[in-house]
Simulated assay, not measured.
Amino acid sequence: MPWKRTAQEVGAVLTTVLTPEDGNWTQAILDRIDKSIKVVAVSTCHWTNGALIDLSLIGKACRDAGCVLVVDATQSLGAMPLSIPEVKPDFLVAAGYKWLLCPYGFSLLYVSEQWRKARPLEETWLARSNAEDFTSLVKYSDAYMTGARKFDVGEKCTPTILPGAIAALKQIKAWGIVNIAETLAAINLTIATHLEQLGFQLPSVTQRCPHMFGAQLPNTFTGNFVAELKKRDIYISQRGNAVRFAPHLHINSHDVNRLKEALGQLVKGNSHNRNTHDIVTARPETK
């Protein structure tokens, strides 16, 4: 909506990249980038099914075409490696409540150096150069803090949010992003392999992220798949026509085996009995 509104205000044309038939979002986006494009706004992966978007290639294409690159990393930051020096986004934003494991109300914004003299999003005294010296607050300052701190949200020192965010980010750092990604990739590969055997349709392993993926139900399945799993204390989400699997590190082999058992019961039993009521428990999804 912000992009649509901005385009209307400045008389720009908003172009949406349609879902590619071959599932290759990276190439579909690259095919639309040329010198007529002023801003490219993309995510690190598709939010419905975890389809991978190669930001390194897109970043290079944007620089070659003179486009501004804006990245929404909400769906992967904290669970998949991301190199700012390699991608070189102009702006990158991420909500904290997903893979960063932070409380609601916390988010991160990266602003590249070339934009740090731009007008801030809001005018808060906490972003002024003398904000940390309370004795000098009566001396009103027109100067902002250096770097990207001028873009900080007002009242950023909320005591009910920051302690939880700091603890979460420290824990992610201790685990290591690469370790998180590799661990979740192994879990998801086991689940994905079983789903394919049951007739689900998935993006190829080269076109999906390590930490989450979506699968389309077999054509023969009828009923509410998500609700049936919920009856078994297994929680996944549905986005459009894809059911999304997004485990985290607390999921172990016992949980995965219970999920596989429940999937088999639902899909195989669906063709014979539309009202399966076996009970399988598993730990809930973290998203």
Rank of each mutant, 00 (worst) to 15 (best):
A242K: 01
D31S: 14
D72S: 14
Q216W: 04
Y97S: 09
M80C: 07
W47C: 04
V111T: 01
Q197F: 10
H250G: 13
I33C: 03
E228N: 10
G164M: 07
F213G: 03
H248K: 03
H277W: 04
D152G: 02
P120S: 01
A282I: 09
D142G: 11
T74D: 03
V267Y: 06
Q207A: 07
L69A: 03
G269I: 02
L77Q: 03
G78W: 14
M1L: 08
E86P: 00
Q265D: 12
V10N: 03
V13D: 08
R128C: 06
E122Y: 03
E182G: 05
G78I: 05
L14H: 09
A95S: 13
Q8M: 10
Q114F: 00
M212V: 10
V71D: 01
S136Q: 14
I84M: 05
Q114I: 01
C45M: 11
G147C: 09
I29T: 11
H272E: 11
L14A: 03
K38V: 00
G164W: 02
S271G: 07
K4E: 15
P163T: 07
T44V: 15
K156M: 05
N219R: 14
N257D: 14
L109C: 06
T220Q: 11
C67E: 13
A186I: 08
D90F: 00
N252H: 10
T124K: 08
Q201P: 03
N219Q: 15
T281A: 07
T190V: 13
I177V: 12
I251M: 13
H46D: 01
G223H: 04
L14S: 05
I236P: 00
T16I: 15
L249R: 04
Q27Y: 12
A73E: 02
I166E: 10
F134L: 08
E86G: 06
G223L: 12
A61I: 04
F221A: 02
L121P: 04
Q207P: 06
A41E: 07
A186G: 14
K170M: 07
E113L: 00
P2S: 09
A51M: 08
P20Q: 10
I191Y: 04
Y97F: 13
L18C: 09
N24S: 06
S56T: 13
L202G: 14
G50K: 05
T6P: 00
